[in-house]
Amino acid sequence: MNRKSAVWLLVPAFMGVLVFTFFPLIEIAIPTFQNRNGFFLLYAQFLKSSYNWQVIGRTFLIAFVTVMIVLILGLPISLWIGRQKTAVRQVLNLLILFPMLTNAVVRNFAWIIILGHDGIINKFLLALHLIKSPLDILYTDAAIIIGSVYLFLPIMINSLVGSVAELNVEIEEAAAILGSNPWHTLFKVVIPQLAPGILTGCILVFAGSMTAYTTPQILGGNRHLVLSTLIYQQAMTLGNWKNASVIALILIIISAFSMWIMRRVSHHLDRRPSNA
């Protein structure tokens, strides 16, 4: 087979992505720019509303806080799992993988049972007479963050455990012999070695929680919209297709831009010689 026939092997995949990813995007993009009164009129209108800025702000806030919590929870357990004996590690990996492969509706629904008015937390606090009436935890930004953390924590752990297992324990022993305390070793020796894995995990979690639909839909309710739930509401509930397209393009730009920034930062922080 020569190179020409090799090109034919590429054509179906190329056409598939071009026709069904890029053409539809162009198709929804074009009408948003067709206005008598200006090219970017719809975008200007969207960005004029303080409500929409609230939605954009919430989208960022949820993604940012989620990444931070996922990192803080994910790091210790990854260190622990990564340093178990192989047999124990395999079992623990299965326990982490199971929620990852379980449907997101199920995982978010579990938190309704915990956070709802009739949920465990409220029942517990009421029984202890710490509160008089149930707290509104469900359908808040906090609930979306909790749900996102729960959704993305296994992904972070999964991407860190591999890097932890590759660490050379002798380097830490050397640090300890030279008088470094465990905390100092953690921040000056362990975390810098894990930096590439941590940064990859953070980018995955940030992009994922920023564009997730199911969690804000189930745990945020109608009054705590993020960009992804706003797209669906505009398109399917209000039938405002142009507005939905505007928001869709804004979401693409914001998420692509955030990922680009995070990649730049990670290249900057990653001081391994191969990346220099």
């Binding site: 190329f14 539809p24 564009t211 692509a256």
Partner: peptide, 24 residues
Amino acid sequence: FQSFFLSPTLIPEIVIGFALYQAV
């Protein structure tokens, strides 16, 4: 080409769904 084939992962799924619904 490799990046092009992976590019659908860069588009939020909700946007893929919405754009496909409208276009297709």
